[in-house]
Design a protein around this nucleic acid. Sequence first.
DNA 1: CGGTTGTTTGAATCCGTTCAATACCTGTGG
DNA 2: CCACAGGTATTGAACGGATTCAAACAACCG
Lengths: 247, 247
Amino acid sequence: MTATSIAEVPLTRRDIPPMIVGNDCGECATRRICIWSHLDPPNHDRLDGLGRVTRKVHAGEAIFRAGDAFRNLYVARAGSSKTVFMREDGRHQITGFQLAGEFLGLDAIASGVHQTDAIALENSVVCALPYAELERLADSLREVRDYLNQAMSEEITREAGLLMLMGNLSAEERVAAFLVNLSDRYAMRGYSPLEFNLRMNREEIGCYLGMKLETVSRMLARLHERGLIDLQARQIRIRDLHGLRAA
Amino acid sequence: MTATSIAEVPLTRRDIPPMIVGNDCGECATRRICIWSHLDPPNHDRLDGLGRVTRKVHAGEAIFRAGDAFRNLYVARAGSSKTVFMREDGRHQITGFQLAGEFLGLDAIASGVHQTDAIALENSVVCALPYAELERLADSLREVRDYLNQAMSEEITREAGLLMLMGNLSAEERVAAFLVNLSDRYAMRGYSPLEFNLRMNREEIGCYLGMKLETVSRMLARLHERGLIDLQARQIRIRDLHGLRAA
DNA sequence: CGGTTGTTTGAATCCGTTCAATACCTGTGG
DNA sequence: CCACAGGTATTGAACGGATTCAAACAACCG
């Protein structure tokens, strides 16, 4: 079977059945990258036993909103989402895009209140892990503790990298770095690192990278002129990953 | 006694005695904001019992460097430091300035290797907490777990705020936000929120805020012209904190 | 289809950078 | 105590990269 992938075949509205298939982690498509795989098999049921709920979210819908009480950590199961940080004056910043297996809501642990909106970019499925119960599980399972600590620490490093990008790179370099990052993450999930569909529009990319949508468009065009990528609309084909990495 | 403060009176080389006074947390100037205060008194000795080491660092010296094996989490005790994220090509980004009571090195937990350089801005004292032992303490003390989780989660939110700033605010707004942030943090430590010394030079501020040192200088001048601040060199006096907050 | 949303491209403008010159502190030694 | 040196800060003028405004075009959905 060819790599028909979640990345390439977006869920459409009718693809999400009313009853989510397999609430069992052993059957989840993300099990290889999810916390599940970091537990010894004997402990797998304990995660399943958690009051875990699978939720489907349609494109544009919120998984949670800034100001919501923090009850669950979420793990993306299928689809993708964005995390948006808001200001009273309406200006906003996308702080990340999440793919399958990645956490949502880690920033809410400190205050007990979500600091960001998490919005599905396409029809998606998320796994809601009740934090109170997860903590109780962490009390007795060091692996769970370690996994959570790692996830948070990684998030800190990820954002530091983004700051670097915002503070130092030109618009063209940022867009290149963005594509390389997506490529790496798709590769890690077994999808093609050279050909994929962007799940977000130009404005969202711009909001993430700190530039205007027109600039994103121009920089993509420039990368194309330089022979590094092909693109039509949201379909990206990387012609020279090495060159793209080099900025 | 007037508020003679660490913030206002920088340590000079000879102010740091060869033997650090009071390795005991109960006497540390930062105990009100340090992890120490989050433990029940009966557990205070357990933190003291940790193989904790106090280290003095002179201005410009590194507390740790990117690439160093991660052994300790550090808490600033006196003085201040910067955290620098490097690229192979030499470009670098300051991701944060740390004041007394704040953690250093949280980003290293995930990989076991420090991702940043931490450099003292002035002669400083840090508390090195061996992470392995801290984890063991966390195994048995939920408060320690919670405190660490909180610290990491806060760091994630802090960086998200910085991303917001970099992606959306003008140079003038960023400098204003920077001053307000320092003001708030000094206030939290019992120092004057309206008058303080910058511990970093213009270039470091610029590196942190994603702009050039000349721009920092110009924006400070502009804030002065607008009657929001007075400044001579690194001495800042906030004339209108409200106005400054409004951008 | 038609309407809506998203994308590309162009020209003028603006903010921040760059380059360069001057002024300023701080500590050191005469 | 003053003068001097080195790093640090300010200020100006020219430049350039990204934004803004505007218009045309493409893709998508019901």
